[in-house]
């Protein structure tokens, strides 16, 4: 039977393997490691010490962690078959526009819904832990998103393919070869659909995943707004943020 988008079964199998392999190879922590760490929480004293840091120090630390994670996302993208065939202009646009989305999807692996905690610097932390950042709305939005995504119970394969589909969004502004990216994304979505079918997942699972896209966009925008405000208030500190962070989130 012909598959949607005119792609062959072999092509779909190939892209599934490539995306899942690159996701696993470029995840900062394996599922086993995350399981082992899930109950390693910051104690009240440690939490207080983070809460009483200055906004500058806490922002700097978060920027470093995000930058580290971005490097893995770049590597994830590079290993998706077809991504490196795009022109470098498009590769950069897709990464700049989509890496925060991918980070948000990946983050749900490092989220514990039982106690609403998230892995940060080796231990699990509550939303209150990030008080010093001075952006409770952003922090709460990130935790709420992680909670809602964890409810979908995505497998590693789902997560890999969903991340790739989001990264390969052909509607990002200033792209050169929209059609090529559209074709790649179509293939990834077909692969994701097949993967869900194989698992015997309900039809709505994909719809549930796709319904998270606007929330992800609003979190990305909120992060940029907060960063711009931080830059205004603390220009010297913002200037010392890792160069890659400044490149990705600069205008």
């Amino acid at each position: 039977n012909p598959l949607p988008g005119g792609c062959s079964l072999l092509e779909i199998e190939r892209i599934t393997q490539s995306v899942v392999k690159s996701h696993i190879e470029t995840s900062q922590y394996s599922t086993e490691e995350l399981k082992r760490m899930a109950w390693t929480l910051y104690n009240p004293e440690e939490t207080r010490s983070y809460q009483t840091k200055s906004a500058e120090v806490m922002w700097q630390q978060c920027a470093i962690h995000i930058t580290n994670a971005i490097q893995y996302v770049v590597e994830f993208a590079k290993r998706i078959s077809g991504f490196m065939d795009l022109c470098q202009n498009d590769q950069i646009i897709l990464l700049k526009a989509g890496c925060m989305d991918v980070l948000l999807i990946r983050m749900c692996r490092a989220y514990n819904p039982i106690n609403n905690t998230l892995l940060f610097d080796g231990k699990f932390a509550t939303p209150q832990f990030f008080k010093a950042l001075g952006c409770d709305d952003l922090v709460n939005a990130v935790f709420d998103f992680a909670k809602s995504l964890s409810r979908i119970q995505m497998s590693e394969e789902d997560m890999a393919l969903f991340s790739a589909a989001v990264l390969l969004s052909p509607d990002r502004p200033w792209l050169t070869d929209v059609l090529k990216i559209q074709k790649l994304q179509d293939k990834v979505y077909v692969a994701l659909q097949r993967c869900l079918q194989k698992q015997g997942a309900s039809e709505e699972k994909l719809a549930k995943m796709v319904s998270k896209l606007p929330i992800m966009k609003s979190i990305c925008n909120l992060h940029i707004d907060k960063l711009q405000f931080f830059r205004l208030v603390h220009p010297e500190t913002a200037y010392t943020f890792p160069p890659l962070y400044r490149e990705v989130f600069g205008s």
């Binding site: 770049v74 590597e75 490196m84 890659l244």
Partner: peptide, 20 residues
């Protein structure tokens, strides 16, 4: 290119931080 120097480098590098 200058504006995205590091991204360009990361995309061109065959050995990435992940491998190191």
């Amino acid at each position: 290119k200058e504006k995205h120097k590091i991204l360009h480098q990361l995309l061109q590098n065959s050995t990435s931080p992940v491998d190191l």
